[in-house]
Simulated assay, not measured.
Amino acid sequence: MEILRVENLNKIYGSGDNQIHALRDISFRVEKGEFVAITGPSGSGKSTLLHLLGGVDTPTSGSIFVDGRDIFLKTVGEMAIYRRRQIGLVYQFYNLIPTLNVEQNITLPLQLDGRRVNQEHLSGLLEILGLSKAAKQKPRQLSGGQQQKAAIGRALIHAPAFLLADEPTGNLDSVTRQEIVELLKYSNKYYKQTLIVITHDESIALQAGHLIEICDGKVRTDKVVN
């Protein structure tokens, strides 16, 4: 079942001689529950696309349909709810709040949304992430891999429909990289979430079932591999 449709998406920054055409008529579709890897060279528009999918930026033209509705026709309030409840974002840099412990960082999206923390769900998530013993520790007390796991937990705590990850393993060693990928794949399978990962890592891309390659702001290839 189709959950995401991108149609003729364009994003232009600046004007006149300083104009940068980051995305050019991008179009593709994603089925619910797919693991999608978006690849391409630096500067190809991958991160711009991810920010648009997450509703944290707006296009110059074109549409993004989620469950059949153009997200950019939502009101300001509806868009805020979309970002808080349907999207989980994971970045290369963990962006944890240094004064909060692991548990507080993970549950922060629920607190900001005025929602109650389900302690059973939180405990299960900490166990899956391997962070149960580190739940009361601050980010400075964690390894890079543990910090990224906490960032993934923060993205998963509100059970979003989409998990969007932008180079989530870029700062990690090879063993920890695969641990993070396995966590993302687990969330894709166990929570039935649609997973979209921006990556330069070919080994990660080869584990996805849907590959999209972007070059110079355009879709070069779009193929479902399994």
Rank of each mutant, 00 (worst) to 15 (best):
T58W: 00
F72R: 03
S203N: 08
I152T: 02
K138G: 12
D17A: 15
Q92H: 13
G40K: 04
T58V: 09
L4A: 01
I81T: 14
Y91G: 03
R154D: 03
I38P: 02
H200N: 04
F35V: 00
F35P: 10
G62E: 08
T199H: 03
I3T: 12
Q19C: 10
L108T: 12
D113L: 14
G43W: 10
K223C: 05
V102D: 06
P139W: 15
A151Q: 00
R140C: 05
R220F: 10
V90F: 07
D25F: 14
F93M: 12
E182Y: 11
E120A: 03
G170W: 03
A80N: 08
S187F: 11
D113T: 11
Q146C: 09
I3W: 00
F65E: 01
V90L: 06
R29Q: 14
I214T: 07
A151P: 04
V175T: 15
S123K: 13
A205V: 04
V224T: 13
S187A: 14
L73T: 15
L126E: 07
K46V: 07
L206V: 05
G68T: 08
P109W: 07
P109D: 09
I71M: 04
G217S: 03
H200K: 02
S123D: 12
D173Y: 08
K11C: 07
Y191G: 01
H121K: 13
L156D: 00
V6Y: 05
D216Q: 07
K133S: 13
F72E: 05
Y190H: 14
V219T: 02
R154A: 05
V6C: 10
S44D: 01
N18Q: 13
L96T: 09
Y13T: 07
D17M: 08
T194C: 03
Q104M: 14
T75Y: 02
R85Y: 15
V102C: 11
R115A: 13
L110N: 01
G114A: 11
G217L: 03
Y186G: 01
A208F: 00
F162S: 03
N8M: 13
K74P: 07
I212L: 01
R115H: 14
G68F: 05
Y82M: 07
E167K: 09
L50N: 04
R29K: 15
V56Y: 09
L89K: 10
A159S: 15
A134D: 13
L129S: 07
N171Q: 13
P160I: 13
D25C: 12
S61N: 02
L129R: 03
I204T: 09
N8C: 12
D113I: 14
K218H: 13
E34T: 13
S61I: 14
L206Q: 11
G45Y: 01
R83C: 06
I20H: 09
H121W: 14
C215F: 12
A22D: 03
A161S: 10
T169D: 06
Q19K: 10
S42T: 02
I64Y: 00
K218R: 14
L131N: 08
L183K: 08
V197A: 02
G77Q: 11
T169K: 10
L183Q: 10
L211M: 01
E120S: 10
I20S: 01
K185H: 14
T99K: 12
L9D: 04
G43C: 11
L112Y: 12
Q141A: 15
P59Q: 04
G145Q: 02
H51N: 05
T39N: 02
V181D: 07
